[in-house]
Design a protein around this nucleic acid. Structure first.
Lengths: 351, 351
DNA sequence: TCGATTAACGAAATCGCTTTCGTAACTTCA
DNA sequence: TGAAGTTACGAAAGCGATTTCGTTAATCGA
């Protein structure tokens, strides 16, 4: 057998021409078999398939891409300065779930590295074209760069996570941030808390604005005070700044009965500040965070938080993007419900 | 100006031929300019560069790859069943650091999705060839699949993280796992603990074997008992199993004075078991974990642990792989020092 | 039985870029 | 001044696929 020399699959690099020769057909026929064309005889098909299998042949992606202008690649863009990248657990979970689902559709992921690309940084559109990605997932922290909007407005299908895209080939998906705040306020209210504060971020992103506005609205709905003293802000999402903010609150003697921190890390900082002053959670102040990072379960007290459905967000993002790439769907915006996870830090222990 | 119609860069998809026409030169000349050949006149070079800039032209990656057999892509393989994927913080941190450094070298990352690829799952070598990646980073959990070794033995440069590769184009890098155990034992010894136990993994991976063997050795070196009762094993790295293991230990009344858990999550389980039985850490038993995941700082007590230098591992991996791809270095094995982070859980509080 | 379908296959152009090699024009130098 | 060397550039052949369109040969219908 001619193919016996290929003892180990993949050892010899094959191309379509070699396969064609071995099978005694033209490259056109081989290509047709690869792409499931109908005008190929069954015998021929089987013979060629056998050879492809025995030699471990796989068509070259670049040649295919060059010819078809489809790469079977999805670009991953981490946009925004704060928080994005692979550092934030939320994004990692979303990407992980996205990767699983998009993999089922036969796509692989291209992670753009942020550093010097042709000495021109962050020109996402150019890089998407360079690789001819079939679509893009844009995951955003705060303050996204202009280049992201350029990509959004292009003809490349984009799905945004935690960022509102407006391009005609773009859709986006995010948690129902307004409902998150509403749920938190409601939960605290039901547990008897009436003086409720907010630990947010100074520089508003789309997301945090949604949360804060809804928070204020819900407070009003329940007839609760919106006391400026209880609204404090951090310059980033880090633990340290949560600590500082709450420490000041304590020293000012303006502690509310409960607080909602827009990130778990901020909440951790709050816990530290409270402990340092000998105050107890939820005894002296109840606390609810947001994100449900792993650490929440292990803090003392365990942190109540809002868990975004990262699994669902990633999966939906993959499905929507797939449908958009394959023109089976017009882009639209989707919002997914988040879940309040009540642990110890918001327990009802008021007098 | 001819190029003025391209008001927005990247709107029109350019190719090398159009650039050549606009500049009144041949495609060969343009290509030479792109690739820094010397036989191009300075005037011509400037003129062409200007046009490329104005039109936002970037050469097509697939065409370039097809012509040169270099893709400027690095494949990322998450191997092994346990723990790998983007789920484990250790791997995410390594990849993040790797991505930064390899990006500086001009490479982007290709994340292979694990699910159905040509109905043949996990044929990493085939996929690497398919995309013609220039190199690979293999990050391993336990029990890696055969396909990984096939890749390792191929002609594609591979850098392993936490896995010993043996291919002639492969190198690997990992923490000094033996030293980790030695440091832990030494630290506990110095703080007065004499009865020291081990919380490990049933199914040995390369890594855990290294740690456990060194642990036993060091115990002996310090003249301490290697008591089988104090060596317990979990079937995975999860919190729940750490909990179970230590719970049994407590109920058997065979608690050592201190323990080393090979993962932080296991240690968290241990903490829970201890708390549940009204036992205190480090009062009734000191505890040291491994990994330094974020949550360690927030547990009660804060978990002492061994912090692997993920930043360094990722960066070194990138540099080594780059050198291997560019034939500037023969593959070799590198070991990086880990650091013991002493927090509350191993404090000296023995009588 | 003969013209018309249909089935099965291949030749060749194409995708966008690289790279070798050839050549014309210009320098240099003895 | 003429041979040799430089400089600047282009023609053309790949790279490995896809896809259109044409060509046989076999099958069909009346």
């Amino acid at each position: 057998m001619l193919t016996e020399i290929f003892a180990h699959k993949g050892i010899i690099e094959m191309n379509i021409k070699m396969i064609a020769q071995m099978a005694g057909v033209s490259v056109a026929t081989v290509s047709k078999i690869i792409n499931n064309y109908s005008d190929v005889g069954e015998e021929t098909r089987q013979r060629v398939l056998k050879i492809m299998d025995e030699t471990g042949y796989k068509p070259s992606s670049s040649a295919k891409t060059l010819a078809t202008k489809k790469s079977n690649l999805i670009g991953v863009v981490f946009a925004g300065e704060l928080n994005s990248d692979l550092n934030h657990p939320f994004f990692v979970k979303v990407i992980n779930s996205f990767k699983k689902q998009i993999g089922v559709f036969g796509y692989d992921l291209l992670l753009f590295s942020n550093e010097n690309f042709f000495s021109e940084k962050e020109d996402y559109l150019a890089r998407c074209r360079h690789f001819q990605v079939d679509g893009c997932i844009i995951i955003a922290g705060d303050q996204v760069e202009p280049s992201v909007h350029q990509l959004d407005q292009s003809d490349i299908p984009c799905i945004g996570v935690d960022i509102k895209l407006s391009g005609k080939n773009s859709a986006y998906i995010m948690s129902d941030n307004e409902k998150i705040s509403a749920k938190v306020v409601e939960h605290l209210y039901l547990n008897g808390y009436r003086k409720i504060g907010f630990l947010g971020i100074e520089r508003h992103s789309e997301i945090t604005s949604l949360r804060e506005n809804a928070f204020r609205e819900t407070l009003k709905t329940f007839g609760l005070a919106v006391n400026p003293d209880w609204f404090v802000y951090s310059s980033d999402y880090e633990e340290e700044n949560g600590y500082r903010a709450v420490k000041q609150l304590i020293e000012k003697g303006a502690l509310p009965e409960a607080m909602f921190a827009v990130s778990d890390l901020l909440a951790f900082g709050a816990i530290r500040a409270m402990k340092e002053h000998g105050l107890r959670i939820p005894g002296d102040m109840a606390l609810i965070g947001c994100d449900d990072i792993d650490a929440c379960r292990y803090t003392d007290p365990a942190l109540s938080t809002v868990k975004q459905d990262t699994e669902k967000i990633g999966r939906l993002a993959a499905m929507m993007l797939y449908d958009m790439v394959n023109k089976q769907m017009d882009p639209s915006a989707i919002v997914v419900e988040a879940e309040l996870v009540a642990r110890q830090s918001c327990g009802k222990t008021l007098p």
